[in-house]
Structure formats: C-alpha cells, structure tokens
Simulated scan of single mutants.
Amino acid sequence: MALDPQAKALLDMVYRVGAPRFHELDVAQARHSFEKLQFALRPEMPAVASVTDVPIPQARAADGVIMARLYRPLSAGPDEILPLTFYFHGGGWCIGNITSHDVLCRELANHSKAAVLSVDYRLAPEHPFPAAVDDALRAVQWSLANAGMLGIDPTRFALAGDSAGGTLSAVTALAQRNAQGPRAALQLLIYPSTDILSQRPSRREFANGYMLDTGSLTWFFEKYLPEEDDWQDWRASPIRAARFDGLPPALIITAGCDPLSDDCKAYGEVLREAGVPVEMLEFEGMVHGFITLGKFFSQANEAVLQAGEALGRAFAAGGAS
C-alpha cells in the first residue's frame, strides 16, 4: 500500500532532520519527544462543558490513586446523566498521558455527546505488566460503582483507546466478560497491538521508515514485559485469549501503512468468528499514530468524527448488558 502524500511528507521531515527513534532514547527523552509531536500536530483544542480531574482510589489505600480526567460534551446540561466512554491513551504502555490525548478526548466527547473519562494508568518500565491492565479494569469497575458521583449512566458505557490503549480496551472487555460483569456498548479499538509475537506480513512490510518501526516496537515490548513468559499472556496479546464470545461490538480503526495493521484485522476476524459484530475502518496510506495529529492529517479528523458518531449510535442503541 502506498503512503499518503501527507504521511510521506511527515516521514520525510522526521527522517531528514535525523530525529531519533524511540528505541534510541531513554524513557524520559521518549516521553518528551512524544509530547512534543502531539502538541505540535494536534488540532485546536475544542471547548467542552466541563473538565474534572478524578482521583480513583486503588483497591488498597496504600497503593494510592489512579488519576483520570472527566470530559462532559459541550451539548450537555449541568445535571444531565450521560453515557461514558473510558479512554486509554496510546504510547506503548511506556509514554503518553492524559495531557497528550486531551484534544482527542474533547473531540470524542463532543462528537458522541457523551462523557469521556481519560485514564492515566501506570506506565512501564517503572510499573511493568500487568500494572496497566489492573489500572484499566479498576478504573472501569470503580467508575461504574460510583456513577452517581460522576453524573454518568452505568448501563451505557464504552471502552476506547489507541495503540496500547486499544489493547487495554480489548483486554478490559475480555476481563469484564470473564468476570460476568456488565458489557460495554462498544469497544473502540484504534490500531491496537493484539499479538506481540506476530509474524504477519504487515510487520515485515512496514518494519522500517513508517513511524513505528521494529526497533521501537521491541523497545516498548521489552519495557512493558520484562518477564519473557508474559509475552504469551492474553492480557498482553488479546488474540491469545481462550475465547471471544459474549464480547461487545467492536469498531476497529486501522492505518494502511502500519506494522500492526494485519494483527488488527486478525483480531477482527476472531471476533467475527465468535459472533461479535465488527466494523473495520481502514485509512489507506496512513501511519501508526495518525489519529491524534489532526492539524497535519485531515484523515485524523475524519477518523475521530466517525469514532465519535459510532459511540453515539452505540449508546443510542441501548445500554450495557
């Protein structure tokens, strides 16, 4: 698949100036580099009705809190009870934060006319697997149990995220199903990592020169999963789960020139085979990470709009089961 001209222009710029890749940086440098890219190329910040920081207590008080940020859409009345999208940011479980995805979460709230809770889960290598998985599940369970405090409807929620956050959304959906907990109205999976040990063709075709290269993938995986046995765990690679029935409907957004694209499509297929409704939305010529770069990519703005509208339709169709 050919690169979109705008994607090629971005990559030419990045590689021409000799910007180091993630695996050539230490963790602090990688986090700073990622934030600089997000701030430079994200769209203008849209207004929302309110933004509230939410400290979510861990199960044990000694473990502190998980910080989250609640966005209410511009269309919402002050006392309106809203559906809720849980959003888990991308960044290879090592970089990214609430701030890096602030604009995206505002856009999704406005497009879906629902609240969005962006979860600042713990990052590796300081907190390796399964800390992020545990935080994602804790954030969902606590928020639904405290829906009245948040002004949200616990019967209408969705799980969403990009890249590593898409993986956390998929894994949380599986964990909720396994625990016979409430089922989300939708899982919105934006180019998730579904199979860490994958050898599918896109891993080779887009191995170098397409933003997320093999060296950086390995850097993220090794930081997140220092124990080799964990690479086989379904909570790291959800395509390795024992079964896929009973999961929420899924919208999977992929980038055409992404080493993870075939893994995303394979996950969509295993969901379909289990009877889960799946919509695949591919943006041809795009690279991994494009959806937060709406100042540079018109396709990012279209993808966010379609994602928000899909969330709105899922909430209108009914609540969690």
Rank of each mutant, 00 (worst) to 15 (best):
L293S: 03
V278R: 06
D79C: 10
A236Q: 02
A136Y: 11
L70C: 05
A2G: 13
D12H: 15
A241L: 13
Q38N: 15
S202H: 03
V276C: 08
S50N: 10
A132V: 09
S321N: 12
T172I: 14
A136F: 06
N208S: 15
A145L: 03
R200K: 14
T292G: 06
A274V: 09
V276H: 15
T99A: 10
Q232W: 15
T167H: 09
S193C: 05
V171C: 01
T172H: 05
C105F: 08
D79M: 03
M1W: 12
G92S: 02
D134I: 02
T99M: 02
T172D: 06
A184Y: 04
I190G: 05
A136D: 06
A255Y: 13
L281G: 06
W231S: 12
A300D: 01
D134W: 03
S202I: 03
L11M: 11
P226M: 04
L281M: 10
L247I: 13
G209V: 13
V65G: 02
V304K: 10
F315H: 04
A114Q: 03
G275D: 14
V14T: 12
P128D: 10
A109W: 07
L186I: 12
C94Y: 00
V133M: 07
R243E: 14
Q232S: 15
R272L: 05
D4S: 13
D245W: 11
E24S: 04
I95P: 00
F283N: 02
L293T: 04
A310E: 06
E35Q: 03
E282V: 14
F22P: 00
I98P: 05
F244N: 08
A160W: 04
A185M: 14
E309I: 05
L104Q: 10
V276W: 04
E24F: 05
P20N: 03
